[in-house]
């Protein structure tokens, strides 16, 4: 049994899943648009949360929030469930597929056999769409892969019940009902306003533009505080969070720039074209940072000079983003 599902490859899992599901249910939507309406852009440096035993640096909001916010802002009705019992979770997934509905699922990457081995870490916020079942294999549309993939029922169940941080607890979601009409401009503006607010006004030092500056300050102290080996590992981890599969490059800044470009057309707002270009420039700055950082990692230089230089690059990113989001909020108004 296989649902006729148009698979499209995208850069990021959750916004790709969202866009592909909307598309299937009759609302043409790009990944960038889903990412923007869902206010996916973010920054936080939270050293007390560990991923693979290293401090969390994130360039996007928590898993699940993009889908939640896009559907809410567009008035789409969603069915969502978590499970305690894997057997029930599997039976209900099969039932939904039987009724001809594609189902989104949160999974742990570590257990998914179709991932390149080098990418299989314990990260539990990965989203994919189950589009069918043949024998003991599920057919899956995972937006970060070129083609649809297959996965054995046992492996998918393990992935759905992955343990540790962000444990998915078998979470699945699907679209129940599309609205008669959607108010795209309103949803876009709400998404933009939220990103500006979180990036500029969150009253926590580790979030938004302040979070970037916090990372810059702390990073400059790493060589002295952590010793050579840990310093290099910490730095490598920041690069991976920023650039690895799923960010679209530059820690999601390029996806967001693409969204602003689309938004300019929908809202008939030419200011957004210039802001999109500035967002691209910020993404380029983040790429420069990643490149410099990777060379520091490769050369194993923990000399203070190179870390002061990296911190300076981060301060520059923070300043540019602060100006960008201030102007963006002004361009949207209210």
């Amino acid at each position: 049994m296989k649902i006729d599902f148009p698979h499209r490859q995208f850069a990021h899992c959750e916004s790709g899943v969202t866009a592909n599901l909307f598309n299937y249910h009759g609302l043409p939507c790009s990944e960038a648009m889903a990412f923007g309406i869902g206010a996916g852009l973010f920054f936080a440096y939270a050293p007390f949360i560990k991923i693979n035993f290293l401090p969390l640096t994130t360039y996007r909001t928590a898993p699940g929030s993009i889908f939640k916010k896009t559907t809410r802002r567009l008035g789409i009705k969603v069915a969502r469930r978590k499970y305690r019992d894997p057997k029930v979770a599997e039976a209900e997934l099969d039932q939904l597929l039987q009724s001809g509905r594609p189902v989104g699922a949160q999974t742990g990457v570590f257990w998914l056999p179709f991932f390149p081995p080098a990418y299989r870490f314990h990260f539990n916020g990965h989203n994919l769409i189950v589009i069918g079942k043949e024998g003991d294999d599920y057919l899956i549309s995972d937006p970060i892969f070129e083609e649809t993939v297959r996965c054995s029922a046992a492996d998918l169940l393990k992935a759905r019940f992955a343990k540790g941080a962000l444990a998915p607890k078998g979470k699945i979601y699907s679209i129940e009902k599309m609205p008669e009409r959607v108010d795209l401009p309103e949803a876009i503006e709400a998404g933009i306003r939220e990103v500006c607010r979180t990036m500029l006004k969150t009253p926590l030092p580790m979030v938004g533009v302040r979070g970037i500056r916090l990372l810059a300050r702390q990073l400059a102290k790493w060589p002295e505080k952590l010793g050579e080996k840990q310093t290099i590992l910490h730095l490598g981890h920041v690069i991976r969070m920023q650039e690895e599969i799923g960010t679209g490059g530059g820690g999601f800044r390029f996806i967001y720039a693409a969204f602003l470009q689309e938004a300019a057309e929908v809202l008939q707002n030419d200011k957004l074209i210039g802001l999109s270009q500035r967002c691209t420039e910020v993404g380029d700055l983040w790429r420069d940072f990643a490149l410099t950082a990777s060379r520091v990692c490769k050369g194993r230089e923990t000399v203070q000079d190179s870390f002061d230089g990296l911190a300076a690059q981060l301060y520059q990113c923070a300043d540019r983003e602060e100006a960008l989001f201030t102007d963006l909020r002004a361009a949207i108004g209210r």
Binding site: A118, F121, H237, I239, R240, E243, A293, S294
Partner: peptide
């Protein structure tokens, strides 16, 4: 000046960071 999706097989910076983790 239009955004497009371009296929990529990888990037030096990422490869360094990833192989370092392994």
């Amino acid at each position: 000046g239009r955004y497009i999706l371009e296929s990529s097989v990888g990037w030096e910076a990422k490869n360094i960071a990833l192989s370092q983790a392994w």
